[in-house]
């Protein structure tokens, strides 16, 4: 992974800003939907071994609800919006007044509501990045899964898999006021996308 070996501190800061802008806008969208303030943690940007990525949400076997988007355009990549099943239920209740009938499974209506919420949040995440960088980025339709974190997240690592055993993760956590709803955005741009992101933001890339 020569491309990322000498990522200086300052390039990591640029990627943090990318996470900040994307997740910041998504948090604002969520805050409007819920009519509640949403706090956001400082994005964590790190080159992480594959195993460590699932650890960020509680381990490879942890059951999570994930909305997955493939980002297409100038800078392709993978975007995940990840919630615990409990947080997803709370979010549904707050937002749509959907009563929780079962803790472990989701009805078709809940599923489609989550998909729509995911769509709105990912849309604001990606469109704010596209505006900021003047690059074209479009999320695909959302795909939902309730399953083991390792099984879900490995889908976002395939592009990096061809180059090495770690991936550059832009991880942003948001928290609703009293910590009742907590979720995470994982953005994993394809390895080729970094040069374009940096060049669009006027950061020189010399890696020869």
């Amino acid at each position: 992974m020569d491309l990322f070996k000498d990522f200086e501190e300052f390039k990591m800061d640029v990627l943090k800003e990318v996470g900040n802008i994307g997740a910041g806008n998504a948090a604002t969208a969520l805050s409007r939907l819920l009519d509640k303030p949403i706090d956001m943690a400082v994005p964590k940007v790190q080159m992480l071994p594959f195993e460590a990525i699932a650890e960020r949400v509680g381990g490879a076997e942890k059951i999570v609800l994930a909305v997955f988007f493939r980002v297409e355009g100038d800078t392709p990549g993978n975007l995940f919006f990840i919630l615990s099943p409990e947080a997803a239920k709370k979010l549904l209740h707050r937002l749509a007044g959907i009563e929780v009938d079962s803790e472990d499974s989701f009805s078709e209506m809940e599923w489609s509501a989550l998909s729509e919420i995911g769509n709105i949040l990912a849309g604001s995440y990606i469109s704010s990045l596209a505006d900021f960088t003047s690059l074209s980025m479009t999320p695909t339709v959302p795909a939902l899964a309730l399953d083991m974190a390792g099984a879900i997240l490995s889908y976002g690592l395939l592009q990096f898999g061809e180059m090495g055993d770690s991936a550059m993760l832009i991880d942003t956590t948001f928290i609703e006021g009293k910590h009742e709803v907590e979720g995470q955005f994982f953005l994993i741009p394809d390895p080729e996308s970094f040069a374009k992101i940096f060049s669009a933001l006027g950061v020189p890339m010399n890696y020869d």
Binding site: A54, A60, D147, M148, A149, G150, A151, S154, Y155, L158
Partner: peptide, 12 residues
């Protein structure tokens, strides 16, 4: 004796 295991297989 023992077990050999791996967790969270998706497309893998």
């Amino acid at each position: 004796q023992g077990l050999i295991r791996t967790t969270g297989l998706g497309s893998c």
